[in-house]
Design a protein around this nucleic acid. Structure first.
Length: 889
RNA sequence: GGGCGAAUAGCUCAGCUGGUUAGAGCGCCUGCCUUACACGCAGGAUGUCGGGGGUUCGAAUCCCUCUUCGCCCACCA
């Protein structure tokens, strides 16, 4: 508290120790039975192997702003952190490490591999949580969870078993999205559709009797090797006679029937569709309806298997495509090839083109879970910001499809299903506790090989992180949560499913508000990504500019519902404003605190009569700022909130109030004590209002304010609520007049290049009421800030001077003798006059418009008349001045 | 193929329910190392609010349409 502050703020010296102190004091730990209404945010758990990127930076900054805001408002603010075991992603990382040793997971074996992943996670995992600390995230770290922890695994089993008991989980052979690289099934959400410039091949199939042929179109010709029918629309007259006949499948020679099915669109292509039930969703369904053979022609890694003619066996799928097309061409059966845009699924983890594959998988029946989740949105129990995201949610819920939850991975929650080993027993056990014996025959059992989709554990986090399935105190206190902050990309993966799980297992939505923020992009509006190399490393930004600067830029740069555009090639332009703001704050503090060491009186002990115009003004501005910034925080308009505080601190407090107050602090002038009290009071307010966005610098300065004490933290200080009773709106107008007067003199000084040290004389002619009051209240400040030797109110001086018409009456004249160029002055005033006259005539026309006068509200008309009067008066004054100067047009 | 969003100063963007002489930060120009801050201070320039039509007394703001970007969803082979 006593060592002097350096002239420049150095965040790197301050942030880490300060964070350590917060943590050591346990300020952000929240008990189940504390005081205050709970406010709960669940972090979107980052992958355990993740490294902090700009998206995390944005997401967690927003959460921290909200949690700090609510904490200061007296809520029992709990931010629950955790990491996700991220099945595919983590397994891939470890497999890559193995590959460097020339090994695959199959070489190592399941048990050893899982061991290996665990040790990898223990060694390097969770580093992102430390990186969040560098960002300033005020999580309750004592509650950190990992989705593969024993507790959360228990919740997963409980949910699986309950859903199974309710008949909502089933196993079956269906077409699923298969990643041939990761060798696992994916959910629909995990298969990312991308518009792709592809081709469509038209192939001719002959009738078995050779009498005729028809043409089918396909984007994946290699699948024809698995065709077991060709379908046409039953009402299509072109094919009316062909239904029931057979075709001879080229290259293979197999006989396949022509069938009629409503799913075929006669208008598309030739109106005939090759049917490959084992390799296409639609074809699978057609196949079911017609009892067609499901011929699987591919191995798990997408090579052709022995179900195809020998010459194709073992070919990789795209290689096979070329061969098939070539043979069709050679046989003269390739009718045409056309370019074709279509959506192709890609694995969301490795980008490989997904192969629809027929396989045995576990599914969750979603419709019964979706109905209540949709209702909760419709009746407002959960709402979205921005609102339009709710439509997305509703649309997905309405068209929900069953969720494929089994993954052919080793890293994850093993499916809690066991099969009896005994021949002929066929008993399947679905259980919370691992069984040792078959319940039917007492024989040995073997657990299902598959693990569950990662999201099958993360959708439970709002309650599993609080101890469920036990009815813990935490659960009672902190479920349901309040706000969820995340990126729109995981609306379906995670948000929608959490709502379903919350309703199903707790009977209540897991949070009331879902704030979906934008994406961080580069200046070409591309998403930041490792592969594009256009990312911004938040840790580098923190190192160079400070965490507060990073947070400031993220918050101020993004309005609700918009993306955040940053230039990775020019960090300076993005983050210097935040650094500069922190430095400004630091210097305000440096200046003020130096004057407060002797102690400062609490604001409520200051008598109203002792308050100067400037005091009353800054108090009034502080009140306004509290109201507007608080409203913006409440409405998630964080950019507006921080802008309001920024403007108050920089443009009001630093630029005007501190300048006004200097003599009172430095000199032996009366009013010093009042100035200190007011300055300390409004600075304290502003620090609190800014703390959610810039926690480090605000805490550092706040702790040095007299009265804070070494144990106090701004993060638990009360949120400023209201106006000081002595702040009055009149001060806003009067101090505004003072500012305008000073500004006018400064403009004239600049206009005529009056040297910075030179003093000028100023005559104010016919001052308005507000200007009169300003001069009466604080002529000293006006003189000092505008460097005025003598300030007089009276008639215009005879000496030539620069002139500014301030308002409808007031004229400010700075006599400058030879410095004044009359022609230039006339031109300048003429320009002003011209602008005003345009305004006046436009305004006159408006008020002469019968329609306007009769239809516009009275208040608007009155306002417009006032404007006209003011402009007319100002214009008249300008004319007079020009006449006095002898200006000619 | 559906659904949605965006187009405002050189750049990144505000402008919430229609009435401001259309704003901020950065950048740019001029002058200042004024004892809190040159990461600063004072002053300044820059916009037919994407094009066209409409509603209205009044439109950056509401409606239609076009253009250009972007996002989400979709089993048309």
């Amino acid at each position: 508290m006593t060592e002097p502050l350096a002239p420049q703020y150095d965040p790197s010296a301050i942030e880490a120790p300060l964070y350590a102190w917060w943590q050591e004091r346990g300020f952000y730990h929240v008990d189940a039975n504390g005081a205050g209404e709970p406010y709960v945010i669940q972090i979107p758990p980052p992958n355990v192997t993740a490294v902090l990127h700009a998206g995390h930076g944005l997401n967690n900054t927003i959460q921290d702003v909200l949690i700090r805001f609510e904490r200061m408002r007296g809520r029992r603010a709990l931010w629950v952190p955790g990491t996700d075991h991220a099945g595919i992603a983590t397994q891939n990382v470890v497999e890559k490490l193995l590959a460097k040793e020339g090994l695959t997971r199959f070489d190592v074996g399941r048990e050893a591999f899982v061991e290996r992943v665990w040790s990898f996670v223990h060694e390097t995992g969770g580093q992102i949580l430390d990186q969040l600390k560098a960002l300033g995230a005020s999580c309750d770290w004592s509650r950190t969870y990992f989705t593969l922890d024993a507790d959360l695994s228990r919740a997963v089993r409980e949910v699986f078993v309950r859903l199974h008991e309710q008949g909502l989980i089933y196993r079956g052979k269906y077409i699923i999205n298969w990643c041939p690289r990761c060798l696992t099934a994916l959910s629909n959400e995990e298969a990312e559709k991308e518009e792709t410039e592809g081709r469509i091949w038209h192939l001719r199939y002959p009738l078995a009797d050779g009498s005729d042929s028809l043409v089918v179109a396909t984007t994946r010709p290699e699948t024809m090797l698995g065709d077991t029918a060709v379908a046409v629309h039953p009402d299509d007259p072109r094919y009316a006679g062909l239904i029931g006949k057979h075709l001879r499948l080229p290259l293979v020679g197999r006989l396949i029937p022509i069938i009629g099915d409503d799913a075929v669109d006669p208008a598309f292509g030739s109106g005939a569709v090759k049917v490959t039930p084992a390799h296409d969703q639609t074809d699978f369904e057609i196949g079911k309806r017609h009892d067609l053979e499901q011929l699987n022609i591919m191995t798990p890694d997408a090579h052709l298997n022995d179900a195809v003619p020998e010459r194709f066996q073992g070919l990789e799928r795209f290689e096979a495509r070329k061969r098939v097309v070539a043979e069709f061409e050679a046989e003269g059966r390739l009718v045409k090839v056309e370019p074709h845009r279509h959506a192709v699924g890609h694995c969301y983890r490795c980008g490989t083109v997904v192969e629809p594959r027929l396989s045995d998988q576990w599914f969750v029946r979603m419709q019964p879970l979706a109905a209540p989740a949709l209702a909760a949105y419709r009746d407002g129990r959960v709402s979205f910001i921005p609102e339009r995201q709710g439509d997305n949610y509703a649309n997905w819920m309405e068209n929900i499809r069953d969720w494929c939850i089994s993954r052919q991975l080793w890293w994850g929650h093993r499916i809690p299903v066991w099969y009896c080993d005994a021949e002929g027993c066929h008993t399947t056990i679905v259980a919370r506790e691992t069984p040792t014996r078959c319940t039917a025959c007492g024989g040995t059992v073997t657990q299902d090989e598959d693990v569950l989709d990662t999201w099958f554990s993360s959708w439970l986090v709002p309650f599993s992180s609080l101890g469920w399935p036990d009815e813990t105190e935490d659960l009672a206190a902190f479920y349901p949560g309040t706000t969820l902050v995340t990126a729109p990309e995981i609306l379906f993966f995670w948000v929608a499913r959490m709502i379903m799980a919350g309703l199903e297992f707790r009977g209540e939505v897991p949070f009331r508000t879902v704030y979906l923020h934008g994406t961080v992009r580069d200046t070409q509006h591309r998403k930041m990504s490792k592969s594009l190399g256009n990312g911004i490393d938040p840790l580098e930004v923190i190192e160079r500019f400070g965490a507060d600067a990073l947070r400031y830029t993220m918050v101020s740069g993004m309005a609700v519902g918009t993306d955040l555009i940053l230039d990775p090639a020019d960090l300076e332009s993005s983050f210097a404003p935040g650094r500069n703001f922190a430095n400004k704050l630091w210097n305000i503090g440096r200046f003020l605190l130096g004057h407060l060491e002797a102690g400062v009186a609490p604001i409520d002990t200051v008598a109203a009569v002792d308050l100067t115009l400037a005091d009353r003004w800054i108090l009034a501005r502080a009140s306004e700022m509290i109201t507007t910034a608080t409203q913006h925080y409440e409405r998630y308009r964080l950019n507006d909130a921080v802008a309001a505080v920024y403007h108050f601190l920089w443009s009001d407090l630093a630029d005007w109030y501190l300048e006004q107050v200097k003599p009172r602090l430095y000199g032996n002038v009366s009013g010093g004590e009042t100035a200190r009290a007011v300055a300390a009071h409004v600075f304290d307010i502003a620090l609190r209002m800014l703390h959610p966005v810039m926690p480090f610098v605000t805490e550092t300065l706040w702790k040095r304010l007299p009265g804070s004490g070494p144990d106090a933290t701004i993060s638990l200080a009360a949120w400023p609520v209201g106006a000081d009773g002595r702040a009055d709106a009149a001060a806003l107008g009067d101090f505004g007049a003072l500012q305008a007067l000073v500004g006018a003199v400064r403009v004239l000084r600049a206009e005529y290049a009056v040297g910075p040290g030179a003093m000028v004389n100023v005559t104010v002619v016919d001052p308005s009421e507000a200007v009169q009051r300003a001069i009466a209240a604080d002529a000293d400040t006006i003189r000092r800030l505008a460097k005025i030797e003598s300030l007089v109110v009276g008639a215009a001086p005879t000496e030539a001077g620069g002139t500014i018409v301030l308002d409808d009456r007031t004229t400010v004249i700075v006599p400058l003798g030879d410095l004044v160029d009359i022609e230039k002055e006339c031109a300048r005033l003429g320009g002003e006059a011209g602008k005003l006259e345009q305004l006046v005539s436009a305004q006159e026309a408006k008020l002469a418009n019968e329609n306007f006068v009769s239809r516009a509200p009275a208040a608007i008309i009155a306002k417009e008349r006032e404007k006209l009067d003011a402009w007319r008066a100002q214009s008249a004054t300008l004319r007079e001045k020009r006449a006095a100067l002898g200006c000619t047009d």
